[in-house]
Amino acid sequence: MSETKLFSRGRLLWWAALCLLLCGRPVAAQEDWPPASAVRFGTLGAEQIRRIEADGATAFLVLQEGGLVAEFYFGRGAQFRAEPAQGIASSVTALLLGSAIGEGRIGGLEDRAARYLPALAADARDRITLRHLAENGSGLAWLEARDLPRVLNGGVNMKRYMEGFRLDVEPGSRWRAASGDIFLLGMVIESALGKSLAAYASSRLWQPLGLTAAGRTPAWTMDVEGRNTLAACCLHMRPRDFARLGQLVLQQGRWNGKQLVPQRFIEEASSAQVRFDGVSGATLFDGYGLGLWHFTYAGLPGTAMLGEQGQAVFVVPALSLVIVRLGVRGDAAALAFALQAGVSVAATPQK
């Protein structure tokens, strides 16, 4: 066969290498997730793909109406690698809270945390509700820069450490990103259920979502004594797993005809319970719900799960759209561009 023939092995290899260099690696949809109709959707341009990769992304997926519109990976094995979901794990913990409420295992958002963690009942911490924890508004004297590294370094007993915090301000009077609130929330769920958060996630989310295939099940790290799940971090998932979580939120907690998380809880979690007044012009996100972030893009409201290194799962209900961006780094500009790129390939749903 001639070396100059269009489909010679040499030319195929050359084109494959060029594609990897210039535009990342598009991956064909597998049988477990059907592709969307190619006719109805746009495509990402080479410049957009280069920018996404240059911003530090390792994976970029776009879904609309439950079908894959775009799927790109940057770096060898990225589509198979389980990424540590630090931050996005907080959103998963909130979803598990909603599931436990829906099952009647937990009374509701207005329950006092002390009902499940008696050590909090002895002082003013008795006023902390589950809503306060889910909204990052407990008022506890947790400092993210100081306390999170102590927890992540694996040298503390989570229960004793978290029960040692006292109130800094009145519960509900201040919002600030506080992994400690989510760690406590995870402990509440574990106390109410009598099982680890990881075990509950497996039965209520991973199995129904189809994430329990051999070698694929998400792994959630426990504390140094193996008693409490690190609810705000250290959940390892593959890119398509993140996409399924976003699709679950888009579908109002329903999957394959089963309500995994109550619709009412998803609606409340996705709404801005706390507004960032005066900050919305400087950042993409203008509010925080229950473990989920709120944003408005091109006049369309949306919700997001956010993590470290520019991890994000965007959900835009008006477009039936889910966008997943994972990476080794990523600032606010990188997140905004990923959202813009995802929206650019999505068509307005037909009525």
Rank of each mutant, 00 (worst) to 15 (best):
C234N: 10
V69A: 10
G56L: 08
A177G: 04
L248Q: 01
R264P: 00
A78F: 07
L209H: 00
R264M: 09
E308D: 11
R254V: 12
L96S: 07
G180K: 02
T303V: 12
V274E: 14
L290E: 01
A114Q: 05
G287H: 07
N153C: 06
P26I: 01
W33C: 12
L167Q: 03
Q273M: 14
P149A: 04
L152H: 05
S196F: 00
D147N: 11
A121G: 06
L250W: 00
Q259K: 11
D123P: 02
R11L: 15
M187R: 00
G253M: 04
V274P: 00
E163L: 10
L143S: 08
G56K: 06
R160P: 07
S90M: 14
L326G: 03
A57E: 04
R227M: 06
I323Q: 13
S2A: 07
G278N: 12
P301E: 14
D331M: 05
W255D: 10
P26A: 09
L306M: 15
M305T: 04
G310I: 08
P262K: 01
V328Y: 04
R216C: 07
R51Y: 09
V27K: 02
F276K: 13
R150K: 10
Q340I: 01
A192G: 09
E268P: 08
F337P: 06
A29H: 02
D111C: 02
A318C: 01
A219T: 07
V151S: 09
Q311I: 06
P239N: 08
L306F: 06
A341T: 11
S320N: 13
V313G: 02
Q340N: 13
A121Q: 08
A338M: 08
Y73I: 11
Q273T: 06
G310N: 03
R166E: 13
L18S: 09
R176N: 14
T283E: 10
L205D: 00
S191W: 05
A219R: 03
P301F: 02
E135V: 03
T93M: 07
A59V: 05
R105K: 15
T217R: 08
I266G: 06
K195C: 14
F41S: 14
D123Q: 01
G87T: 01
E225M: 12
G107L: 03
A16M: 14
A346C: 12
L284C: 08
R325K: 10
T43I: 08
A57R: 12
L6W: 08
C233K: 11
L230D: 04
S203C: 12
I266V: 11
A141C: 13
A70F: 01
G155S: 09
L117H: 07
Y200G: 08
W220Y: 04
D123L: 01
R275V: 15
Q64P: 03
A298D: 10
V169K: 09
V169Y: 04
I88W: 09
Q247Y: 01
G164E: 02
R227Y: 05
V39N: 14
G87I: 06
A46L: 14
H236T: 06
A36V: 05
Q86L: 07
R76A: 14
L321E: 05
A17P: 08
W33I: 08
A338S: 14
W175G: 02
T217Q: 13
G307K: 05
G342S: 12
M237I: 12
A214C: 05
Y200Q: 06
I49F: 10
L230E: 04
L61A: 01
M1R: 15
A38D: 13
V313L: 01
G246A: 05
M222F: 05
G104R: 11
L44Y: 05
